[in-house]
């Protein structure tokens, strides 16, 4: 099987992967694999690439790494030709690409299983699985949790996958974004209709009801006006003042990287759980590899 989009997964399948990740976190991997994973990242990555490589090693696998800067992409080789060639060198491919749909296209043309490591502004399903796993670990459940998603909801691929998964699991979602960076209305309508999701929207950083705050970076490059970009970015910098009226046990998550959208005082508070979240990338991606290879 391939893992391309969160839309491809049923709730039962996600629960299986999360349960499998629990086993992995406890060091109870049932299977080891004498296989090779190829990481093909056409865009920069720290967490996704390294955690997939680490997860593969922990499953007894080896990895090969592709970087476009030192490959025949520089000579003009196409994405598809590259994927077709590397599919013969490895047993599973993890692909990140700036174009939306790249992983889907790759999965359509090669027989080797493909995992989407992020495609443009479209999907980042493995990050969404890590996010769900972290929420379950830190709050005990996902259903009926008040979850605030804040930042650039329009362009962040993590948000496209996460909001869909949260709706599937019955979370109560609040969307917080600057004007112009709201979540695509068609996606909101889709999850409202499909999952009867309860969704609120607002534009100020206040979190009275939130059990979880998930914050992602404002992407300055999306603004035509640099002054407006700076203003919005400053407005969306999270500090302890914003958390004054928040629940004491609020959990703050982020897909990372964070540049300066979260203040240092928040960084050092016990509410900030995003480094722990990043570390869950290992058991969750071990579970994903295991699930993909065994189905």
């Amino acid at each position: 099987m391939d893992l391309i989009s969160i839309r491809d997964l049923e709730k039962k399948e996600i629960e299986k992967i999360l349960d499998l990740a629990e086993d992995m976190a406890k060091g109870k991997a049932k299977r080891k694999y004498d296989k090779i994973i190829a990481t093909l990242f056409f865009e920069p990555s720290t967490r996704t690439r390294l955690s997939f490589q680490s997860a593969a090693l922990r499953l007894g696998m080896n990895y090969i790494d592709f970087t476009p800067e030192t490959s025949s992409i520089k000579k003009g080789e196409t994405f598809l030709d590259t994927v077709k060639v590397i599919s013969g060198y490895a047993d599973i491919l993890v692909i990140r690409h700036p174009k939306e749909g790249a992983a889907r296209l790759a999965a359509d043309v090669v027989n080797t299983p493909v995992i989407n490591g992020g495609d443009g502004g479209n999907q980042h399903p493995t990050q969404a699985l890590i996010d769900l796993f972290t929420i379950r670990k830190t709050k005990g459940k996902i259903a009926n949790m008040n979850i605030s998603l804040a930042g650039d909801l329009r362009h962040a691929r993590t948000m496209q996958s996460l909001v869909y998964a949260l709706a599937m699991f019955g979370a109560k979602i609040t969307l917080i974004s600057p004007k112009g960076l709201e979540l695509e209305p068609k996606l909101v309508k889709e999850i409202e209709e499909k999952f009867e999701a309860k969704i609120k929207t607002k534009s100020d950083l206040s979190f009275e009801d939130a059990d979880v705050l998930y914050i992602c970076r404002i992407q300055e490059e999306r603004f035509a006006d640099p002054y407006e970009a700076k203003r919005v970015k400053e407005q969306f910098m999270l500090n302890m003042g914003h958390l004054q009226n928040a629940k004491k046990d609020i959990v703050i998550l982020s897909p990372l990287p964070k540049i300066n959208e979260i203040s240092e005082e928040v960084d050092t508070s016990d509410k900030a759980r995003y480094f722990e979240q990043a570390h869950y990338g290992i058991p969750v991606r071990m579970a994903i590899i295991d699930y993909v290879l065994s189905n």
Partner: peptide, 12 residues
């Protein structure tokens, strides 16, 4: 219509 869709740059 999405200019960033892979189907507009690769043979798909």
């Amino acid at each position: 219509p999405n200019p960033n869709c892979i189907c507009n740059t690769e043979h798909a």
